[in-house]
Design a protein around this nucleic acid. Sequence first.
DNA 1: ACAGCAATAAGCATTTATACGTAAATTTAG
DNA 2: CTAAATTTACGTATAAATGCTTATTGCTGT
Lengths: 216, 216
Amino acid sequence: MQNNQSESSLSPPMVHVVDDDEAVLDAVGMLLDSIGQLNTCYKDAQVFLNAYNEPDFDKHNGCIVLDMRMPVISGIECQHRLEELGCSMPIIFVTGHGDIPTAVEAMKQGAVEFIQKPYREQQLIDAIQKALQINLKTQKQTKKVQQTHSKLALLTKRETQILEAVVSGKANKVIAIELHLSQRTVEIHRAHVMDKMEVKSLAELVKIVVDASPAE
Amino acid sequence: MQNNQSESSLSPPMVHVVDDDEAVLDAVGMLLDSIGQLNTCYKDAQVFLNAYNEPDFDKHNGCIVLDMRMPVISGIECQHRLEELGCSMPIIFVTGHGDIPTAVEAMKQGAVEFIQKPYREQQLIDAIQKALQINLKTQKQTKKVQQTHSKLALLTKRETQILEAVVSGKANKVIAIELHLSQRTVEIHRAHVMDKMEVKSLAELVKIVVDASPAE
DNA sequence: ACAGCAATAAGCATTTATACGTAAATTTAG
DNA sequence: CTAAATTTACGTATAAATGCTTATTGCTGT
């Protein structure tokens, strides 16, 4: 297994715009073009989801602007499908005839904005900017966690055991007794752990391991 | 100064109801009484905030039902104040004449529900139940974080400085040079930090400090 | 003004903990 | 069977924790 992380944070983010009203779609597309923002437009949710499932589709770098009221697959439905597909891009909803329960539902599902038509262009641009900022932050965090997991995968069983004990704050002496080992053996495993995890201090080790743990 | 954290996770949760309409307030109070749910009613946000700032007020065990439209201090304003006061109780908004932007704003600020009047009683009960569940889940974490902050507040400037350096992984020797101190002085401050933070190992220290840091 | 206290700083000595280098034996998995 | 993993001994060096002591500063209450 290798490090297959591409440097997505370096490539420009894509804004995916989904709206069944072609006039709106074109307008938003041109608006984004005018500010030099990379974008792709989709005439309905199904077309977007199909594109999303293409192997070369970047599922994590950018954000999504979703119209609420669309035929066949609604914005909310699309949000749910994306959730299931593990999409990490923030969603901005745009709607003409929204009601409060729908807006609340969308926000509870994690939407970053819910904008009503008609809106000022700047309003949408601000929301997109904010969404992209959130996305950038998520990406960095996710990347770090994945890198830590790659390193953790390189540890042997014993090393993992020692790592857990060390991170939980036990002294080498204690670990040695608990695992029926000599102190020297613990020291060597510990040194290997520090090497493989690419850290120079216990503090760093604890931080990256805790960060990459279940609760987050 | 002592450990003044009570074992709130063991005591029954309190539902705080804030509504300027006395009829509504009484009705909700009785509804909650009828299902055996501990509750306190407040006739406006100021009364609630005053109670909140009483020293014996449990700031973390329960949830809050907030009316949106109230004189002097609105629901949203109250939410903001509570946020600033470090309140970790989930908020359920109830409103008669809400609009989408307000609802979206409330949800963005972390509200768990936004219910429109008139609502079915069961709807409110479900929301409260869900809020209390969320509260239970986050309580232990929040409690730990606040306890850490209490301990951090007991540190002197120097000790805080040393803490930061230690947590960032620097050796005493390095810290001594950077702060123009002798190693012995660093060792003493460090020992005081360990005492005051009530930890026995560097690993524990790093964990509680990182846990209680801005990014969370 | 003076005594008392907390914070800060530091020296000296001791013990414990951690980090490595060298060497070698055993076990395990491909 | 070979390579990687695991284990350990002996020894040295650096780092950290701790006890005891001293001293300066700045604030506080009488």
